[in-house]
Nucleic acid binder design. Structure first.
Lengths: 197, 197
DNA sequence: AGCGTTCTTGACTACATCGTCCATAACCCT
DNA sequence: AGGGTTATGGACGATGTAGTCAAGAACGCT
C-alpha cells in the first residue's frame, strides 16, 4: 500500500528524549534532534508533528516509565516491604550522585515548563501522585508487617517520602555528594514512626 | 568627566532576573531583556557583558538574597526558635502554592543549567549549604530551648529539612495544592525527635 | 564655553531555528 | 510489473537571536 517506516519509533523517541533531557526544551533545536535520531526533518515532522507535540509524546512515555519503575520497585511481599522502601530511596540517592547533575527529566521539565504548559504540569502532577500511591501501598505493607506504627497515616508519610525523594533530586543536581544524600535519606527513614513493642 | 548612567542598575538587574525567572535561561532572549529593562542593547552589553555574564550576576545576587532571607527568618532568641522554624517551612509551603508554579529561581536555574555551567552549580550548592547552616543554627537553638531532643544531630536534621524544603518546591511547581504542601511540612516537623520528659 | 569621556540608541551582521515543501525512493496490492 | 501511497532527505523561507558598531547625546572638568 505504501512505503513503510525505515526507523524504529521507540529508539527515535529515546534519542529525542535524551536530547531534551540533556539540553532542556528551549535549549534543544529540532536540528539537534534530527541529528540525534538520524532522521531527516521531513520524517521527524511527518511522524511526530512539531517540537511541542514531540516533547509531549516523549514526556508522557517517560512519566509512565517513571511510575512503572516506582511500582515495580515498591510492590511485593509484605515481609520485604521495608527493605524495598530503603532500597528504592537509597538507590535514588546514589543514582542522583552518580549521574552527577544529569538528574531526572520530570524535575527538569517541570521546572522549565510547568509554569507555561498545562499539559506538562498536569502530567507531572499525576506522576507525583502515582509515585505517592506506590509509596502509600508500600507503607501499608510495612504496617501489616509490623515495621511501621499501625496508627500512622500511610498517605501522609508517603507524601513526606515523595517530598524527600524530590528534594534529594534537587540537591543532587546542585552537586551534593553521595554520602550526604544517603545520610539524609537514612535520617528520613529513621524518622518514620516505629511500632510499639 | 563622562556621561553618567541614566538607568538604575539594581532595578535593571531585577527586571532581567524576573525575565530569566519567568522564561528560563535558554528561553529568554537579550531582546526580551532589553524590552523588560527598557535599555538599549548597547547599554545592556556595555554594562553587564553578554547573556551568560548577566545571568551569573543576577543569579549571584539572588542566591545571596535567598541565604539572607533564610538567616533572617531563622535566627533570633532561643525561646521562639521552633516557632520560627515552623513559620519558615509552612510559609514556604503556602508561598509555593500561592505562586502557582512560578517557583524558586534557584531550583529552576539549577535544573536547567547546573549540568552544563560550573558557576551555576557551585553557586547553587553553596546556597543550599548556607540555608542548611541557618537551619542547623535554628535547630541547635531549639535544642537549647528543649524543643528538640538534645542528643539529636542538628546538622543531619537540617539536611533533612532542607531536602523537604526543596521537595516542597518541586511539588509546588507541579501544582500540588496548598493544604497538601502544608500537611507534608507538618508531617516532617512532627517527625523531629522531641526531648524526653 | 569647550573638550574629552562615557553612555545611549538602534541599525546591522552573521548565524540559528522552526517548520514547509518537493523530488525521489521504497513498499504493497492487484 | 505497474500504480497508488507513504516515507525520506535536504534545500528553502521567514523569523529569531547574540552580539557589534557608529553616530550622537549628556555630563564634568578646566
Amino acid at each position: 500500500m505504501a512505503r513503510p517506516r525505515e526507523f524504529d519509533e521507540e529508539s527515535a523517541l529515546n534519542a529525542a528524549r535524551d536530547q531534551f533531557w540533556m539540553t532542556g526544551y528551549a535549549g534543544t533545536s529540532m536540528d539537534a534532534i534530527a541529528a540525534a535520531t538520524g532522521l531527516g526533518k521531513g520524517s521527524l515532522y511527518g511522524a511526530f508533528g512539531g517540537k511541542r507535540e514531540l516533547f509531549h509524546r516523549v514526556y508522557d512515555d517517560h512519566c509512565n516509565a517513571t511510575i512503572d519503575s516506582a511500582n515495580r520497585h515498591l510492590s511485593g511481599a509484605d515481609e520485604q516491604a521495608f527493605e524495598r522502601l530503603t532500597a528504592y530511596l537509597l538507590g535514588h540517592a546514589t543514582a542522583c550522585a552518580e549521574r552527577r547533575q544529569h538528574g531526572c527529566l520530570v524535575a527538569k521539565a517541570t521546572a522549565e515548563l510547568a509554569e507555561h504548559d498545562e499539559v506538562v504540569s498536569a502530567r507531572s502532577l499525576t506522576t507525583f501522585e502515582n509515585v505517592q500511591l506506590a509509596l502509600t501501598g508500600n507503607l501499608e505493607a510495612c504496617q501489616r508487617n509490623g515495621d511501621i506504627h499501625p496508627a500512622a497515616d500511610a498517605q501522609q508519610l508517603a507524601g513526606l517520602l515523595l517530598t524527600v525523594h524530590r528534594g534529594i533530586e534537587a540537591l543532587g543536581k546542585a552537586g551534593t555528594d553521595e554520602s550526604t544524600l544517603r545520610s539524609i535519606t537514612e535520617t528520613a527513614l529513621a524518622g518514620l514512626p516505629r511500632p510499639p513493642r
